[in-house]
């Protein structure tokens, strides 16, 4: 069954808060999974690089899981929706990260973690939406 365009647009807008919440939960789960896949070692010299890698891994996992569903649901608007999806995470963590001025290592690790989350999610969603819209164009003509 194919929905009319207006109904499809309305459904996308109605689903937006749920998508944003799902993105927030997904990121939390990815952080937990990254710690399981790449545990922090006891040696402090190794702990910092691993913490940085964990953030990058969590961002990669989130992007890998979310990019195609977002692109499938929102098509060309998907990168914009990906930006919106990052907002709850940024809203809850950014003030805390910016406060850590006295702890540059902690601030750096978390700033990098957030930056990689935003860049990878938006970038991967943009690529996925390009891939899907391109394939759709090909199948039509």
């Amino acid at each position: 069954m194919k929905l009319p365009t207006v109904a499809r647009q309305a459904l996308r807008i109605v689903l937006l808060p749920a998508v944003m919440l799902a993105g927030f939960i997904l990121y939390g789960q990815s952080i937990g999974l990254a710690d399981v896949l790449m545990p922090v070692p006891e040696d402090r010299r190794l702990a910092l690089p691993i913490l940085i890698s964990q953030g990058f891994l969590a961002a990669t996992l989130s992007a890998a899981v979310a990019c195609f569903p977002l692109a499938w649901l929102y098509r060309r608007a998907a990168p914009g929706v990906a930006v919106l999806t990052t907002l709850p995470v940024l809203y809850t963590t950014l003030p805390d990260v910016l406060q850590d001025g006295r702890h540059p290592a902690s601030m750096f690790i978390h700033a990098l973690e957030l930056a990689s989350f935003v860049i990878l999610l938006v970038g991967a969603t943009w690529l996925a939406s390009r891939h899907l819209t391109g394939r759709r164009r090909d199948s039509h003509g």
Binding site: G28, I31, R44, A47, H103, A105, S106
Partner: peptide, 23 residues
């Protein structure tokens, strides 16, 4: 607290050398 929340705050404390861990 939830896993993700605790994980995130523990990482901050580990990065600042406030908390250490041993297996």
């Amino acid at each position: 607290v939830s896993d993700g929340n605790l994980e995130s705050h523990l990482k901050k404390l580990i990065a600042a050398d406030y908390v250490s861990l041993r297996r």
